[in-house]
Design a protein around this nucleic acid. Structure first.
Lengths: 250, 250
DNA sequence: AAGTGGTCTAGACCACCCC
DNA sequence: GGGTGGTCTAGACCACTTA
């Protein structure tokens, strides 16, 4: 062994795994222009020497960067930089607050409901918990510069983020609050559809009945695969667009 | 080495990597009820012996099952069955033909337009080419079991996939045709919105005027970051849902 | 203290690509 | 043939959990 991993951990003072720091180094080099778009990276075995890690660790870092859309591999040819330097597009779905920031608008929320209750049969089945298990239900109207734009309903198992209701969702992001309570957000199975506004939505958002709405339903999991959030967001069709980037076959 | 991997590959006749087959074995055992929901799996080192693989390979299989939502790990405690995965979730946006296959419906297309023309100012700007550069414009009505479901407009620079119009888009997938002509599909910047049907869409899809439509606009790049396709798909809101998985922050 | 997952290493062999 | 990524192994040490 050329270098005990514990040395690096102590030296850097960071708790991140080695492969994660390696991924960061490579990404930094790409973004610094050392490897321009479309060019080939040095061979894996060479990168191992440069970065002083084993090939397994290096490949774990590279796999992470593929996931992030920054690199592509071609068997027998090499690793290539695939991401254009434009940082304008989110790699996952752009959140409401991120969108507001990008557009230079003020995001705010009106909390319509914030309660702890027994989970319904439907919610329990979706979340993979026993019916009746305590959940938090949070319903908000979301505004852009004061204009009501979306109706947002969230259901979170109490066990996933105990004490969640202590947060003030008028200003604070739900994701950030969940993160603070120990529920990390990782993967979201999502269904998108378009349908006419129903009575509740048209009243909350001051829309005509039957106006087109963009509806996104998500089951969000943490890094361990546990379902931590069931989310339904109904956007006024003429007031919002969702932006995202799909990779491979999108 | 206790067992050369090539033996297993030859014996099984399958090209799948070992870790993938290991993941399949474990999933099969879970689904067969050998490890009910919430129970603990045998320790990793024990599973290694049972399945006759190294720990690295086993952990790759387990990581895959976490990603699929079937398992959860707790450091120091063990691996637990978290939820039998219901249905397949696409890692990127599910394509029209994939959706049809999942639902057991027949996908077909009517080609409304397939032409080579000079690019418009708008299209040229989006694709990053000079206005007037030759492009292919392909417009299709897409059906599920004969029901018109979406209006699909695609613009492809001729240079990205020369000879593209020789394909028959009544049956063949656009992506596959582009792949065959040398345009690999990699990343798609996407905007989703909901809006009322306009005259063209309501006629093509036999919808009432103003009926909600789900609209997705995509700028698709290849692995080198070159724009290869500008796509606009308008779905009848009451006939289609988009499914996908977002990672991190969705 | 023992058991368990989390990370990392060094080395090997294979399949594919290009000269 | 030589270089490159793709896969797999055996063994080691660490951190966390449980008792």
């Amino acid at each position: 062994m050329t270098r005990p991993p514990s040395d690096a951990l102590l030296a850097s003072g960071r708790p991140d795994p080695l492969w994660s720091r390696v991924a960061g180094s490579i990404l930094a080099a790409v973004e610094a222009g050392q490897y321009p778009l479309g060019t080939r990276l040095p061979p894996e075995r060479e990168l191992c020497e440069q970065l002083d890690v084993s090939r397994v660790t290096l490949r774990r870092a590279l796999a992470h960067l593929v996931e992030a859309g920054a690199l592509t591999s071609h068997q027998g040819r090499g690793w290539f930089v695939s991401r254009p330097p434009r940082g304008d597009w989110p790699s996952s779905l752009e959140s409401f607050s991120e969108t507001a920031e990008r557009l230079g608008l003020a995001a705010s929320s009106t909390v319509v409901e914030a309660a702890r209750e027994a989970s319904s049969l439907d919610d329990a089945e979706a979340l993979g918990i026993a019916p009746g298990t305590p959940v938090y239900r949070i319903r908000r109207i979301r505004h852009l510069d004061g204009v009501p734009t979306a109706l947002d309903t969230a259901v979170v198992p109490e066990a996933a983020a105990p004490g969640l209701l202590d947060h003030d969702f008028t200003r604070e992001s739900l994701y950030r609050a969940m993160q603070a309570r120990g529920a990390t957000v990782h993967r979201a199975e999502s269904v998108l559809e378009s349908r006419p506004a129903d009575a509740a939505a048209s009243e909350a958002l001051q829309l005509g009945r039957g106006a087109p709405m963009l509806v996104i339903r998500q089951l969000v999991h943490d890094e361990r695969g546990r379902a931590v959030l069931l989310s339904l967001v109904e956007y006024a069709g003429d007031r919002y667009r969702l932006r995202t980037t799909f990779t491979k076959g999108g």
